[in-house]
Design a binder for these strands. Structure first.
Lengths: 344, 344
DNA sequence: TGTTAGCACTCTAATAAAGCGAGTGCTAAA
DNA sequence: TTTAGCACTCGCTTTATTAGAGTGCTAACA
């Protein structure tokens, strides 16, 4: 559909605009060494490209700027191969050289490095804990009335919850209950806990424990894990440095979205299959993100998706570089996690 | 030193400027009902006030704006009594009506409500966990090589740390160790743990446990609590709405400080004694906070300071209202916490 | 037939000029 | 001591002007 010359021109326009942020004119283009024809020819080609919707003018006599469709085509067909510098690679690898054994910390660190390297914002969707299996439940009484209920999963995830104890319950009962719970529930995925308690634990408790109903309510409350997967954002303030958000109103609109987090949650969850995905401008279908692109990748253990890691930047984004960086982080992260969890 | 009339004028200028954000001229002032004299008189008085350094002009023929000294005097001597609305009071009280049993959540909620009510940014310095006493240590093995070490304090604070286990250590040894640690260390303030382990636990462990040195190192690592007290920020983005930060560069400078967090840590720790403290502009002695004021208050249990809660806003801040709100939150928070911890 | 030089034209952004209005300081009168 | 009056200052907005970058179109060229 597009001639080679048109592709060349489109590619250079996008590259140049991503680099400079300025609309690209025919004269500027004609000076590029890859270009062997005159500015007049370029003008003709640009008029065609504009008619086809790949580029647009900011005003009637301005240079051209990639349209959303133009970016899309660029990302799909024209992306120049990008060689990460050794320094970038080393910076990323350094995350995994440190002795970090906690999933959350590892994820946070990844997000931070990625946002530092790209100068954009990184969003990570942590793994849903629902599928993690219970390792142990502990109830630590603090005083006569309150206790901390602690849940540990096979992945090392720890959740705590301060609860009230029934008045004057014997300590032995608490211990008994903890034993029963651990006996029956170890290895059960967190999302099934409530059911399992209903079907298997209630009747046992009823036999052995005073005021078992209060205790049950309490334990159910602390197991109320309808909490969505954790999300980590890093480098929000990098957006302050993007010239497209020099306008305070655009900035406000953007941060409204960013602070919501809800939308990101939705967007990141959408990404199911492997590989890197690029969503440009309105493709994200979020108000306030018209001028942003979101590049997402999943990380996984042994092929099974754990979560999503994404970079948010202006549509005028260094796609090539960001995709490479994101890819590296995601695969490294997956590798490390796969190693971790294959030990079991 | 200042005549009553000068005080009146100063007060109205500050009030009006805080309200409107516009320099206040003699004509505007003369229309206020409290003012019984002419604009010419006001001009004379304003010239004096300016000479004394309480107000300044933004340019040679502009209205007057409070100087830092002016704000200082206003806060120290002219603060109008502020009656919180019933609605504000109820909103704040609602924090404490909910069944929250966790210190962190309570603090976060307080910060959030305070930033919502004021439209400024709230910073809270959580209690230092150093003085909390150990309730229990648990070590939950995850697989052959790793385990989660969990520390619970008497305040319900939980800290976890994933650690590596010595190769092929018997489970019984881990249990033994946990028993020994709990035996010897329960009730010890966290900050003394390392010492206590050195003096009291090492020799016992040596007798009973294989590869006790690895275990010791491991447990020490997970007790490495030189982590500073937690800090919570809420409502950072409220600053976007302050007209003084409409300028993108000022905004950047401000967020540089906010994101650092280090400076806040320093500032909030400085506040030792009871009561509300107001630091205006350069009084904070932090680059980038010249246009900001920080109002701090401490919260405490039974008179003993636990942490600090603060509101950050532009120097053109609703001092009266913020002080009242902050006061209410801090005292309510103190009351609730005192109730909690007097149960022991 | 595709390419290019040339040119008139358009529009932005930067700069200058002009007028308005809010506010000041000073003077002289009450 | 207070106030009315007035000349003056400056920021802000509006209007004009200009320079420059870029375009589309036409006609000539290979």
């Amino acid at each position: 559909m597009l001639t080679d010359r048109q592709l060349l021109i489109l590619k250079i326009i996008v590259d140049d605009f991503i680099r400079s942020g300025q609309p690209v004119g025919s004269r500027t283009l004609s000076k590029k060494e890859q270009i062997t024809f005159s500015s007049a020819t370029i003008r003709n080609e640009m008029a065609d490209l504009e008619e086809l919707g790949f580029i647009e003018k900011t005003h009637i006599s301005s240079g051209r700027v990639p349209s959303q469709k133009g970016y899309r085509y660029y990302v799909d067909h024209l992306l120049p191969p990008f060689r990460l510098t050794q320094k970038d690679i080393q910076t990323i690898r350094s995350i995994f050289h440190e002795q970090i054994y906690e999933l959350e910390k590892l994820i946070q660190k990844s997000a931070q490095i990625l946002s530092d390297l790209t100068n954009y914002t990184t969003v990570v969707l942590g793994p849903s804990v629902k599928e993690h299996k219970l390792k142990t439940i502990q109830i630590v009484p603090l005083n006569a009335e309150t206790a901390v209920a602690i849940i540990v999963t096979d992945t090392g995830y720890v959740e705590k919850h301060v609860v009230t104890l029934p008045p004057s319950i014997p300590t032995s009962d608490v211990e008994k209950m903890v034993n029963i719970l651990n006996d029956r529930l170890t290895g059960v995925p967190l999302e099934d806990l409530t059911d399992k308690i209903q079907t298997e634990v209630t009747h046992v408790l009823r036999e052995h424990i005073q005021s078992y109903d209060h205790m049950l309510r309490m334990i159910s409350a602390s197991l109320d894990l309808n909490a969505p997967a954790q999300m980590f954002l890093s480098g929000k303030m990098n957006m302050l440095r993007q010239p497209e958000f020099n306008d305070i109103d655009k900035l406000r609109a953007l941060f409204n979205v960013i602070e919501q987090e809800k939308e990101f949650y939705r967007l990141l969850r959408k990404h199911k299959q492997q590989g890197v995905q690029v969503k440009i401008g309105t493709e994200n279908d979020v108000e306030g993100m018209e001028n942003c692109s979101l590049i997402t990748a999943t990380y996984s253990v042994g092929g099974e998706k754990l979560g999503t890691i994404a970079v948010l930047g202006p549509t005028r984004m260094e796609y090539s570089r960001v995709i490479s960086l994101l890819n590296l982080v995601a695969t490294d992260l997956s590798n490390v996690l796969t190693m971790w969890y294959q030990k079991d």
